[in-house]
Every structure is written in C-alpha cells, then in structure tokens.
Design a protein around this nucleic acid. Structure first.
Lengths: 347, 347
DNA sequence: CGATTTTACGAAAACGTTTTCGATTATGTG
DNA sequence: CACATAATCGAAAACGTTTTCGTAAAATCG
C-alpha cells in the first residue's frame, strides 16, 4: 500500500540506496547490468520518486505561481492556457491564484507563493496596485518574477506586454482613415497603465492628424463584471451629450458590444452613423452583427512567452549565470470588420 | 540571503531545535517565556518553515490538482474560480491542468498529479474518456478524487453534478408551455453523459406531453471552438429541412446565440416564429437581443462544493475515518427571457 | 607480475522539519 | 525533608532523496 522507495528496491536487489538512485538517473559509474536490474524492478514496482524528498534535496519544486486579477475573463483565460501549455512542455506545474484586482490580496498571495517556495512567479498586476515593495522584496529573496500585460514599468524584472499606446493609436487612426470627424473614447479605469496608454494613443492619434483633443469626449468605464452595461450607459450618455460624434475607440470589446447594443436600440446605425473600434479581439466580436473592428491582443502567445522568460530566468539562476531582464513586446494587429466599414477616404 | 531555519533560531537563542519547533506550534510543554522569545525572533528574522521539509515529514502538500477539459470556457472558468476561492479558504493551493478533451492527456495528467503527490484531485472528464482504469487506479493508491459536471457514473467516488436530464426536461417543457407545437433539439456530442442526459430530458418532455419524438429534429453540434458557427449551420440546416419547427432547445448558450444570429439574418423572428431555450446562463445571453431564455448552471457553486467534498475526504482519510462517497446535485433553474416570450398558453 | 588506471559500488552527510520519549528541574504535599 | 507530580526541555529518529568522496575489485599496461 505504501509508496515504493529507493530503500525497498535496494534491499530486494541487495545493493545500496546510492546505487539504485544513480542507476535510475543513468550515472556513468554504475554498470549496465545493475542499471537494467534496477530499472526493471523500479518499473514493475511502479516506483515514483518522492517529490517531497526531491524538492527538499534539490531546493526546487518544478512549480510556478500565477497571480491573475480575474480568472473568468476571455483575455486572461487565454493567457492562463498559454502559460499552462508552455509550462507543461518544460515539466512545470502552475498554481493559480486570483487577486480580484485587490492589492491587499495580491500581497498576501505573493507571500503565500513565496512560502510555498515556487520556482518563480508570473503576475499580472491588480488595478489597485500602486506600491511595489512586495514585488521587490520577492525578487530580493531570489524568486524569479515576470510580469505580463498589467505591469509596473518601475519594477526591474522581465516583462511581456503589448504596446497599448501604439495599438490605440492604430485603432484611432483607423477611425480617422474611415472618415470619422469627431472621435470619442471609452476608456478603462484610471489606474492601470494599460488604459492610460490606450488613452494616450488615442489622444496622440488625434493631435497628430489635426484633430482637437476634447476631454468631454472621453468616458470612463470601470471594466468590472458589468462591462457590458457600462458600455450601454456610456453610449447613452454620449448620445445625450453630443450629437456630432461619428466614431468611438473603446477600451474593450465587451464594452464596445454594450455600446453597439445601445446604439442599435436607439436606431443609431453602426458604422454609418457611428463607427466603432474595440480592443482584444474577443471571439464574440467576429460573431455579432455588425462584426466589430478591434485590436487583436494575443493572450495565448503572451502566456507562452511569459513562461518562456520565467523559465530562462530560473535556468540562469540555477547555473549562476548573470540574469538580464528582458521586455518583450508582442505584436498586435488591427482587425477591420463591419463596424468601421464606411465610405473609406484614406488620406 | 539563505532562508532562515529552525536551527538558526535555536542557535542564536541557545536552545534546541525541538523547542523552537514546539514553541512556534504552541505545544503545551514549552514555557510562555521561551515561546515569546522564539516567536519574536522568528518574526524579526521573517522565518518561514521550509514547506519541502514539512511536506516530507507530514506527507501532505496542501495542494490539490484540477483537471479540466478546457480553461477558456465560460462555465469552466467559473468552476475554476469557485474551486480556487474555496481552496484558499482552507489553505489549499490548486494546480490546474487542461486535458483538451483528450483521454490520453487526461491519463498522463492524472499520473503527473499523482507523482506530484497532491492531496487530492478534482476532475471533469474529457469527452473522449470511456475507460476509467486511470481513475480507479488513482483511488486505489489512496488519492482522494471527486468528479464534477462531466462525470462517470460507474466510478465510485464523490461527485457534484446538475441534473441535466431534469433541466432539459424543464427547458423543453417551457417551450411547450410557451405554445410551441414542433420542438427541435440541437444536442451536444454523442459521448459525454451530459448531452445524452439533456437529449433524454428533451425526449421525455415531448412524450410526456403528447408530442411525437422525431429524430430528424435532433441536430448534433460538436461544441468545440466553433460552437457559434455550429449553431448557425444547424439553424440553416433546420430551416432547409423543416418549415414547421417553432421551438428549439439548444445544448449550449453559445450555440443558441449562433442559431439566433442565423435566424435574424434570414428574417425569422425569435420568439414569434421560433422560440429558443439555451443552456448555461452565460452572461451574454442576458445581453443579446432578444435576450435568451436558458437554464442557469451554477459553475461557481459547483467549484466550491466540489472542493468542499474533496476537503472532507482528505480530512477523513487523515483521521482514518470511514469515507463515504456523496453525490451532490446542484439546483438549476429556468431563466425565462425574451427568446420564449410568446402568447403563453400554460396548461 | 607489479604498477597504474578504470570501473563499480557504498557510506555517510545533508536537506529542514516533526514527534516520541526520556531526562531534568521546579513545584507541591505530607 | 522525602517524595510525588508537574513543568520544561532536548536527543534522536524519521521522512526519502541526492551527491560527494573514498575504496575495493577489475582491467590495462609495460
């Protein structure tokens, strides 16, 4: 009933534990004969090394931690999938924790993962996180850390991101190229760098192309569970406030779809009256009517590369090589769909 | 730089390791005085017990494994969230693996988790899984296992499910009560028990209410990534095959929304021409137009209770209590929305 | 055949806890 | 004061592995 150990194999074969261990790991100083004997017995006894002992000896667990603001999220769940897939390839397991966008929770979870002695941590920051002591402490204690998507530029570690600003610029430029003359923006919450960057990209696209930036055209959506409703509400508000807006760049597909729904309800036609570009390329955006132009945000790939960076760092540390932090910026691309398909007047 | 150990505390305080360990765990046979001393020093040194050693000693890792067919899935991601939330409450961490609906992968992952010596495993079966040796082996080797949602009735372990058959019956009955005279069914793949049960519930609702069961009204959707498109295609096919269908019970909300989209495109109005009931209560179904009637499937709660059952089993095993397997059936409820709001003619 | 190198093996320490059980000291009782 | 009891403590084993280093036997060589 009890799990087989090296000791048992050693005793039944009447050799030492050392030799058994070495045989199983193909050390050169054990004969082919005994290797074969040991391996066969191990096989028939279904021997599995006790990871607890291995961890203790080797000081590593082949496990990494992942802290994510929200699991139920189309983008993040794709990231998770990418991370798990890549980790599995390298023999790593991943423990997932959810910060619920709370700084306090995030701090606790970092602590928890550290005390669990994971080999490294992958994190996408909570919106509330403005202090980074917990992250710097972690790294000071020799735990590799890489941040993705929602990052802190100040923290010195590897990162994988998209260029939110550039992507937003492209999205807004696309509205301009589509002939929009007055372009609004539904932005995300004030805190995370991403919504700031997207906002800045929007703004710069405007000014670069001779448009005046008008703060009254920027609406804030607190992208929570109610994203969809916030889209609807902001759309409603926009219609009350302005009658000349003919294009909107929206922080997120779900909010955009909310807005779209509201417009359709009020008889505003998209894209003829108002063109819309979303963000994320959520699968639903290719599915609704009109299909939604958007920025493709490669979640799965982000997960994969985030793990790859972490893996490199773990390896470097083991081999005592110098570790150099890297920031990789993943390509986004504009997906043109019906919601911006108007009379094109490219400049 | 190196982590603090009991030994270091013991040496600086000039007492034994034993006493330090006991002091930290509030054993009765150590004086308040030394307890205070030890605890204070541990605090200032930021002592964290080495989990690897603890695991080895106690033979448990306070970690459970979770195998799920697909992470990027509205229902499953809610289950994941529920599991993580409940596990965290009890001090457990969860390792997530994805089977991609593959039996082979599932088997490997069970093996992997077993060799990682997780304290227990939560699983929702892959569609392809028809053989259960890997699960029975696992349990024979003393690893607690509980299955949820996609289960195997044959395997003797705790389970948490919904009554798919009953829910489907309710959904279909609702169509009948809404005045539908000829009701189709878009079912899921042939294998998993869930789609079989939903199909059976549909069938029984028909026959119980004096409707003839017509196999030609049952369409199969292989609920993969392309669920939405399958919904569209099945809808298209249905319109070609039959012109008298006025109600459909659909295996999944996403497929239902696909069908809905196709109907709208072809000028079939929902619910007037065809009423639709979906399954899952995906948030999108309350958001599209017309809003979709559906069966609410409590993913988050399912995750929580699945962990609770597993936790109980882990505890029982530790205390050598007899373990009794339990199957808990979670309530589903019909959500009536616009897609079935016709001339009600309740019997 | 003696010297040297290879080959094959094992003893033992170490990783950091937890827990049993025995020993020592302090306290209480008559 | 002698003795029993209670209060504190620590030695040591155990969990199962990995790895260093030493040694004995076998093979090689001149």
């Amino acid at each position: 009933m009890k799990p087989v150990t090296l000791k048992q194999i050693a005793e039944t074969l009447d050799i030492s534990i050392t030799t058994v261990s070495k045989a199983l790991k193909d050390y050169p100083d054990v004969s082919k004969k005994t290797k074969k004997l040991v391996k066969e017995l191990a096989e028939t006894l279904n021997y599995k090394p006790n990871v607890f002992a291995v961890n203790l000896r080797t000081k590593e667990s082949k496990t990494i931690g992942l802290i994510i603001p929200e699991v139920v999220h189309h983008f993040f769940s794709n990231v998770i999938k990418g991370i798990i897939a890549q980790a599995e390839k390298k023999g790593y397991l991943v423990i997932i924790l959810q910060s619920n966008e709370s700084y306090e929770l995030e701090k606790k979870q970092i602590d928890l993962l550290f005390s669990k002695r994971v080999d490294g941590i992958l994190i996408s920051l909570a919106n509330g996180t403005g202090d980074f002591k917990h992250l710097n402490d972690l790294m000071a204690q020799d735990t590799p850390l890489v941040m993705f998507d929602k990052i802190a530029k100040i923290v010195n570690c590897s990162k994988v991101i998209i260029n939110d600003r550039k992507a937003a610029y492209t999205a807004t430029k696309h509205l301009i190229d589509s002939g929009c003359k007055r372009i609004a923006h539904f932005r995300g919450p004030l805190l995370p760098q991403n919504s700031i960057d997207r906002f800045l990209g929007y703004k710069q696209a405007l000014t670069d192309n001779g448009f005046a930036y008008d703060p009254s055209l920027v609406y804030i959506c607190d992208c929570s569970d109610q994203s969809f409703d916030e889209g609807k509400n902001s759309a409603k508000q926009l219609l009350e406030d302005h009658d000349d807006v003919d294009g909107i760049f929206i922080n997120t597909d779900l909010v955009a779809i909310g807005a779209l729904t509201e417009f359709q309800k009020q008889g505003i036609s998209v894209p003829e009256d108002i063109a819309i570009v979303g963000f994320s390329n959520w699968f639903m955006s290719s599915v609704i009517s009109p299909t939604l132009s958007t920025i493709d945000q490669p979640g799965f790939k982000m997960g994969k590369t985030a793990f790859k960076l972490l893996y490199k760092e773990i390896k470097s540390r083991k081999e005592n090589l110098p570790i150099k932090f890297k920031t990789v910026e993943l390509e986004t691309k504009l997906i043109e769909r019906e919601s911006t398909r108007r009379f094109h007047q490219k400049v």
